[in-house]
Design a protein around this nucleic acid. Sequence first.
DNA 1: TAGTGGTCTAGACCACTTT
DNA 2: AAGTGGTCTAGACCACTAT
Lengths: 233, 233
Amino acid sequence: MTVESLPKHYLVRTQVEDLLADLSEGDAVPAERELAARYGVSRETVRQALQELLVAGRVERRGRGTVVARPKLVQPLSLGSYTEGTLSQGRVPGRFLVRWEEIDAHAKLAEILEIGLGDMVIHLERVLLADGERIGLESTYLPRRRFPDLAETFDPGTSLYAWIRARGVAFTTATERIETALPTPREAALVESSTAMPMIKLHRVSRDADGVPIERVRSLYRGDRMAFVTELR
Amino acid sequence: MTVESLPKHYLVRTQVEDLLADLSEGDAVPAERELAARYGVSRETVRQALQELLVAGRVERRGRGTVVARPKLVQPLSLGSYTEGTLSQGRVPGRFLVRWEEIDAHAKLAEILEIGLGDMVIHLERVLLADGERIGLESTYLPRRRFPDLAETFDPGTSLYAWIRARGVAFTTATERIETALPTPREAALVESSTAMPMIKLHRVSRDADGVPIERVRSLYRGDRMAFVTELR
DNA sequence: TAGTGGTCTAGACCACTTT
DNA sequence: AAGTGGTCTAGACCACTAT
């Protein structure tokens, strides 16, 4: 890509950004066909410009039409639970279960959790909510041997972190990998987004005071709706 | 987006992924027009599928044609310098200056750096390299009063972190914000990427032992080429 | 029912790179 | 010169939603 001769979709993007400056959160953005006519470009070019503004979190699709987006939500990247992190930002946390299964540990999972190959692993997948909005998807893998009564006593609508801690297990360290990723159609549907919307993917392995892995978590957050903060020491 | 009836571009994406499984790093991927003919779809549909694989870091554009991508580079998200982080991953770090300016601090910057409104700030922008590959863009803002001889004694091709530390300033804490973002055409060109490629944007304020801000850094890393790891305690 | 965004097509022209 | 990806167009059909 050269610096000279800016692409049309980028020019449309900056023009629409000027429109947004005069609008408020939740206000309707002109329709794609209307913008195409106004700027003398094809609808596909407008769509590319809007896609960039969607990824940037400036606008969002809302039922019928496009509206000015709310600011991104911010989450601390910390050892604490999703519940605590969300509450600390003044948001109401929520979650609901979309999958619960008990599987044989394959080689990689067994290695990560430091369990035997073929040991049973509990996998729970939950949609994460902030103020009722779907903002992410969380997959947790736990060794069943360590938490045999999880299925009977844990309510998937509540904090797993709190449940584990209440059983005397201390979260002491965690390794986390952070990158961008695109969702599958299923994942996109679960968070009410699209396959073209980049997500923030987090891979975490949490350990107890003895350095023993407690859980492996894979989280997928909507890149247009979430940002993370962390304190480095 | 509904779960049923998968979009064609996603089906093409999975079919191309199957192709990639039989190829090695650097091998050529069939041309877009060839893939369109092979799968009986339009070229634009193939392009959407390839765009998803580009974002995922599975393929990359290379001169003429598309090839199987190398694995993502991994950087620690730590207080240390880019040089140290890159070396710790067994990569050769590099950087070159693309902008040097001294500006009056505007309100927000003055607040962040805890300096007077209108105090002079040094802004340097550098392209970051790993093994010679352009992987990111870094903008650093420093109060000139604290580093008056920066222009005379600092070589922008070297580690700024090391230069500051050598002057007896200790990096003690930092606050970092992490999110996805799209580059402007200029930024995309500098890292040899495109405006449609999601980047990982980092905002950092580093502080010394007294809690005084040392610098503000805004980094933009190619999302298709970089991942980050951090240790949580 | 009318309007919206989501998807897909067939084709065009361009800049660039390799042969 | 030939082939590649980058951009853009004009149009089509669809599912969904607000009226």
